[in-house]
Amino acid sequence: MNLIFAWILTIIIEWGVFCLFFRKDYLKLIGYSILINSITNPLLNFLLLFGINMITLEFLVFAVEIFLIKLLFDLRWKTSAILSFCANLSSFLIGIALGRFI
């Protein structure tokens, strides 16, 4: 899958999860989704080039996003972890599903 397509898709999926969670400030949420995924997604693809295990990287992305969500959305750690888990699980599963069809 093209890298830019994967990046945009991740931004949209995680924005969808954020929208379902907050149900307001949709424009601000897309901004945050772009920022978060502009940090984690290119770094994930960069580290993939070194043959690092995908599951390990997903786990790292999950951890980094907890931190970013906590800072940007000003949430509690537990809520940030749940939101990060839902966002990353959605993008991971949709990515796998699309990867099989594209």
């Binding site: 978060i36 940090i39 970013l68 800072l71 940007l72």
Partner: peptide, 14 residues
């Protein structure tokens, strides 16, 4: 290098 520049710019914005 875009893989590194984009995250750095995003971190700066954050």
């Amino acid at each position: 290098y875009l893989y590194l520049i984009i995250p750095i710019v995003a971190i700066l914005i954050v």
